[in-house]
Write a protein that binds this DNA or RNA. Structure first.
Lengths: 138, 138
DNA sequence: ATTAATCCTATCAATTTAGTAGGGATTACA
DNA sequence: TGTAATCCCTACTAAATTGATAGGATTAAT
């Protein structure tokens, strides 16, 4: 299951990407428009800022803005920041690899092989999708 | 993350598929061989039996057996029984659909569109993989 | 009968999730 | 220079989920 954190984060990023203009976007505005608890969203945007995806401006008339063009912001990066590893098991994770306690031999593990396929296909989607794609208005 | 339940379930199914012969396989044997807590595994195999994937024989010399040929047991079915919905959000689930509280319009939701792609790609893997594939010894 | 299995229900500790609370630090602007 | 608006940070909490464990009821072979 996708966590609320990730869902809210994606919606917020989309909202920011769609807001053309120079001024940073405030948390309160996003929260209201996207129906997200404001305090919860604050924490999420903070995470996105710390990861380098968002920038922020403090104080009156402050807010958040994208640090790159929407077309440059890949879902692989966003998802890893918000949701964590893309793989369903640590033993097939590229960025967060860990060996399983059980499982004497990874190469012979049926779960491992299946989950590598799932990972590769999910990765393909995330690598191929940018914030610009999410923000398309149709 | 894949739950231990699913992981153990897949390993157990693989184990049973590999055990050629007529006699049913006992939980204790699987638990020992695959390093799975026996009582926990009991519950998992029970679930698989109730879903129709496994059959069982009670009493002395009892155990579990597959109700179809490994090549007929699709991962879509197994995963749905063990892990639940394949989709990452209920609003893109084929078998467990639910509308989101937030989200006035699904068609315009960026998360929705992304998650449909992920679902379709994951589904492709699971539809294409059977227990026979998992059980291949190489 | 005895033994060996599955079956069933209840309970539990640890972790994660989804938030809430309260205030600190910084900035714009009157 | 004061004040309001805004992000920033830490701590707390309730509910749900996960990964088990415990104890026995039921069933079947010998």
């Amino acid at each position: 299951m996708l966590s609320k954190k990730t869902k809210y984060g994606l919606k917020a990023l989309t909202y920011i990407a769609r807001s053309i203009g120079d001024t940073p976007i405030q948390v309160s505005e996003i929260a209201k428009s996207e129906q997200i608890p404001q305090k919860f969203l604050e924490g999420i945007l903070l995470t996105l800022r710390k990861s380098g995806i968002l920038g922020s401006k403090k104080g009156k008339h402050g807010g958040y803005y994208l640090r790159s063009e929407p077309a440059e912001i890949k879902m692989t990066d966003v998802m890893r920041v918000l949701e964590g590893p893309i793989a369903m098991v640590p033993c097939v994770s590229l960025n967060f690899y860990e060996k399983c306690d059980d499982c004497p031999d990874e190469d012979k593990c049926s779960v491992n092989k299946l989950m590598i396929q799932v990972r590769d296909n999910t990765l393909k989607v995330f690598r191929n999708t940018t914030l610009a794609d999410l923000s398309q208005i149709d």
